[in-house]
């Protein structure tokens, strides 16, 4: 445990001192901020137009238009975009974890230190996760704005917001586990990022491809495999045990795989 903590502190310090984390946080916040304010402005316009649309629908004897709803238009949409952006952000945040150690030759020190590869892996994984959680905390300003500009008594749904953050934490942890694995494969950070990005993209494509598969069981299987798909229920405010089990087993499997890669490298040194 002590070994894990030592690696965790060291990795977190490296992150804080590295410009990469700030640049990625900057890009992530700009993109999310843009989509958030766009959704807010859209809903603001829709709210203004809504009485007229409603009256028109009544006069035309049509079903009334859907009411303006900050949960659906702003919260769900913004956090869905965030989940999508993670595919591009995470490989860059995790690419250096082991690749840098290989390149600098410090991996030998790690392997010969009293800290086991498993503890090192846990420390690195948790450090990345802590940094990612920190970036997510920075997005709380969206919640503040949504609360500020919502009407009294009809504030955004707290349960939905909590569920969205929980889903993003699980999704991010899964992406980090893929990133750590890719980083353990190569000493080239760019290659690690590309491998990690490719794997994450593959999962995205698998989810999308399910819609084009004729066989229902096969389509369901593909949908189940897709990492992003399991975040959907969280983004709708539903916490499902099957999604949690999926994420835990996915993260566990990827970390075990990484551990085996490290063990294999260790005995080749």
């Amino acid at each position: 445990m002590k070994g894990t903590w030592t690696v965790f502190v060291k990795e977190l310090r490296s992150y804080v001192h590295s410009p990469v984390a700030y640049v990625m946080a900057f890009v992530f916040l700009i993109l999310c901020g843009y989509f958030f304010q766009d959704a807010m402005n859209f809903l603001n316009r829709y709210t203004t137009d809504y009485p007229m649309r409603y009256q028109q629908a009544q006069q035309m004897r049509r079903d009334p238009p859907p009411p303006p709803n900050v949960d659906i238009v702003v919260i769900r949409r913004t956090y869905s975009v965030m989940a999508f952006l993670l595919t591009f952000i995470m490989p860059i945040l995790t690419m250096r974890l082991y690749s840098e150690e290989y390149r600098n030759g410090t991996i030998e020190l790690l392997f010969t230190s009293p800290v086991t590869p498993g503890q090192t892996l846990a420390g690195k994984f948790l450090a990345s996760f802590a940094l990612y959680a920190g970036i997510l905390v920075l997005t709380l300003n969206f919640v503040v704005f949504a609360y500020l500009y919502a009407e009294e008594g009809v504030r955004p749904d707290t349960g939905l917001i909590l569920s969205c953050y929980l889903g993003l934490l699980f999704l991010g942890a899964s992406f980090i586990s893929v990133g750590v694995f890719a980083s353990a494969l190569t000493e080239n950070q760019i290659v690690a990022a590309v491998v990690s990005f490719s794997v994450l993209l593959m999962f995205l494509v698998i989810g999308a491809a399910a819609d084009y598969v004729g066989n229902y069981s096969a389509a369901e299987f593909l949908r189940y495999l897709a990492v992003n798909g399991h975040a959907d229920s969280f983004l709708r405010g539903v916490i499902s045990l099957r999604d949690i089990v999926y994420y835990i087993t996915f993260i566990g499997f990827m970390l075990l795989l990484t551990n085996r890669v490290l063990e294999s490298r260790r005995w080749r040194l």
């Binding site: 807010m40 402005n41 809903l43 603001n44 709210t47 809504y50 859907p66 009411p67 303006p68 709803n69 900050v70 949960d71 659906i72 702003v74 949504a146 500009y149 919502a150 009407e151 009809v154 504030r155 955004p156």
Partner: peptide, 9 residues
């Protein structure tokens, strides 16, 4: 069905 939860800015 979703209720009326507007944004007014």
């Amino acid at each position: 069905e979703p209720g009326y939860k507007p944004i007014v800015m």
